[in-house]
Amino acid sequence: MLTTLLQNIINALQWGSFYSMIALGYCLVYGVLRLINFAHGDIFMVAAYIGFVFVGFLLKFMPGSGMYGWIVLAITLPVTMVLTSMLGVFIERVAYRPLREKGAHRLYVVITALMVGLVLENGNLAIFGASSRKFPEIIDKVVFTFGGVRITNLKVMVIVTAIVIFIFLQTVVNRSKIGMAMRAISYDKFGIPLMGIPVNKVVVFTFIVGSSLAAIAGVLFGMSYPVLDPYMGMIIGWKAFIAAVVGGIGDIKGAFLGGFMLGFIEILIVSFFSSNLKDLIAFTILLIILVIKPTGFFGVAKSTKI
């Protein structure tokens, strides 16, 4: 019983890591622009596909096992991050920024984000077809066993990566100069350009960081759950976003913990009830939390001026 519970906790930590990594991407953009970037889940999906294509390309030249597997991963990750960041910045530049500069209502930017998500999803569907793809196995699986609890090296990698990313973001946002600019923009959008802060550069930086996170999450997701389909980003993205809000969006700690919380809830429901009821129970719990605490666990209520 205890070992099953521990095993489930390990699984939940891995599953929650993915939610956390995606939730952090939502949280960054939301924190700066007050924009729900609904395309983020689909950027994650595109990243997984870019990783898939690139790994497939590399495996033609070298065997995907042993030392070579790690080399493949070491090349794939940065390439995917760069390509995905380019996509993220392209979307920002072409779709969001013109709207912002025209002073469109905030919700119109959100709708545009939804549309960008649809374009990415269905564009992918049109290119790759509806059948799901299998991500090739690149690193050799090593299983550690601690008193009946099995942990693969991949799981350790995923969980550690999520924590490292969290610490990195926490330092960047709270300690660095550009992080200060990011917080400043979310605080006062109109006063900030007057202080000589290049708003657009900061926004581009935010999108680069957010998309790179999605890229890391996408490649790791492909390695952990090796079935890719064009709609995976949408569902995980929506869920991660809800998790981020329950944790308290606009606060990095909140998004991080919210992701893990959703992971735990889902895995525990699956292991103790049935997987059919997963979404029903998970969303009901989240709904109740939001009703009781409308700004999430770590969110700060925005004061409204009259």
């Binding site: 929506w238 709904l287 939001l290 409308p294």
Partner: peptide, 24 residues
């Protein structure tokens, strides 16, 4: 009922969650 206390994006999330709940 949640909308009494909740506004804006937080309410948007509640509506998404309600949609998911009804469908599942």
């Amino acid at each position: 009922i949640p909308s009494f206390k909740t506004r804006d994006d937080y309410l948007a999330i509640i509506t998404i969650a309600v949609n998911f709940i009804i469908i599942t």
